[in-house]
Design a protein around this nucleic acid. Structure first.
Lengths: 250, 250
DNA sequence: CGAAGGCTTGATAGACCTCAAACACAGTGG
DNA sequence: CCACTGTGTTTGAGGTCTATCAAGCCTTCG
């Protein structure tokens, strides 16, 4: 069910039914990946993009000495290596964090889709830019926020992203990551992640057990994380759409 | 002289002479900005993009309590708020670090340019993705690298970027930033920036006086910064270009 | 010459890391 | 049914990197 992708791009790009239909037909047969498996590796020059259908994955880069930095979490509906379509060479890897189901979209298919349906091309461009906005927010967090705030902020972001697209974040949702993985995402050691998590729990903000996050105090969490969802660009955008042949009713 | 922009996009996108000509005509009359002036502010919904012609600028985000994180340095030839064209609302600000000269490119002009010259659109998309690649590298640095390595890495990146586009980095180049600004970019205090700079100097790697960086030991600096320029995607890319009507001679 | 901004230095403090080990829990096999 | 193993979480005790505070110094510029 690539519906999540369609819905996401619909929000980003104001697609016509024809665009949506073409988009929905793009993915090939789904395939399963085991846990902890690389879907794409740094240095690859893929000829297909991978659309995540089920499960949780992450983009990451590992350094020469074994350190690893997680760059983004990927949820169902995300194209995990759209970059590879536009830039050819992957400068980072993508791996599964749980068992995953994913469908390939051939670059040739995507190419035809984009040239025959310009609004889809624009929506994809926007998608990569929202991605970049999240990266900026991570830079801000890693550079300026102390661990506690950084962590609260991350959970806010994730809550927003797993929420029904465009909807309000749920009080409880799946987020099956280990504390090691949280550490690699936040630039913290496991030990410290653990202590910060305990504090978040003690303050009554959230708990994380068995891969499920439960937010007990959304307002408090937002405050603790100094979270402002503006950078996620939730509002449908109606921009320079005419360049891509879209009527702007504005 | 918007030539730097043309050259950059030429590398990114394999433009025809007609594309280049159209691109070169896009910018409006240049304008000067004083030092420390905002060119675009968070929350703006600009109707033009700003092409930097001379001087040094940076993108940044400031937090509620006054902390500030610099997200990227912008050099001549960069469109500092291309994001605003595609995503409408700016989620960060851009300010000058020196006196600057810049030319506006109206969104309407850009829109026509992109629709009449699809290769330019693709090149711009690529440009935003290279930007994102640099952000990822900053995330890795802030999350995983200690101050010394992080700083060495930054100077490597800047050396590459100010180099004649596509060429080898020069031994000496202008980079007029204060140590406060370096701190805001690297997530370090001024005091620590100062001490790390002294160490880089003491180790004979580089010096930074009067706004000019001189690299004394390029190999050593690269090593100290664990620097691999792959993420800058220097190689011309010849990808799904046919989607944008570009003949691939490959 | 005085003021302002930037650089440099020293001393102290705190956030976070590393090392090391114990604990909990699920899956496996005898 | 009970070890047994493995992965993930939790705790404790140092140790380090980097921040903060507080001056002093240098250069530039009006």
């Amino acid at each position: 069910m690539p519906d999540r992708l369609v819905r996401k791009l619909e929000i980003l790009g104001r697609l016509t039914p024809a665009d949506c239909a073409a988009l929905a037909q793009a993915p090939g047969p789904a395939r399963d990946f085991p846990r902890d498996a690389d879907m794409v590796s740094e240095g690859d020059r893929p000829s297909v993009c991978i659309l995540l259908l089920q499960g949780l994955a992450c983009r990451y880069r590992s350094l020469s000495d074994g350190r690893r930095q997680i760059l983004a979490f990927q949820f169902p509906g995300d194209i995990v290596d759209l970059q590879g379509f536009v830039l050819r060479r992957m400068d980072h890897s993508v791996m599964t964090l749980t068992r995953c189901r994913a469908a390939p979209i051939g670059h040739d298919v995507l190419r035809r889709l984009v040239s025959e349906h310009p609004p889809v091309g624009l929506a994809l461009w926007r998608d990569t830019l929202v991605d970049a906005a999240m990266l900026r927010e991570w830079v801000v967090g890693l550079g300026q926020r102390p661990a506690y705030e950084r962590m609260a902020h991350l959970f806010c972001e994730v809550a927003y992203r797993v929420a029904a697209l465009g909807g309000a974040p749920a009080a409880s949702f799946d987020f099956p990551v280990t504390q090691v993985e949280l550490g690699d995402a936040l630039g913290l050691s496991v030990v410290h992640v653990n202590r910060v998590m305990q504090r978040l729990r003690a303050e009554g903000l959230l708990s994380h057990r068995g891969g499920t996050v439960t937010i007990h105090d959304w307002g408090g969490l937002r405050l603790a994380g100094d979270f402002d969802p503006g950078y996620l660009h939730p509002e449908p955008t109606e921009l320079a759409e005419r360049a891509f042949g879209i009527a702007t009713d504005h």
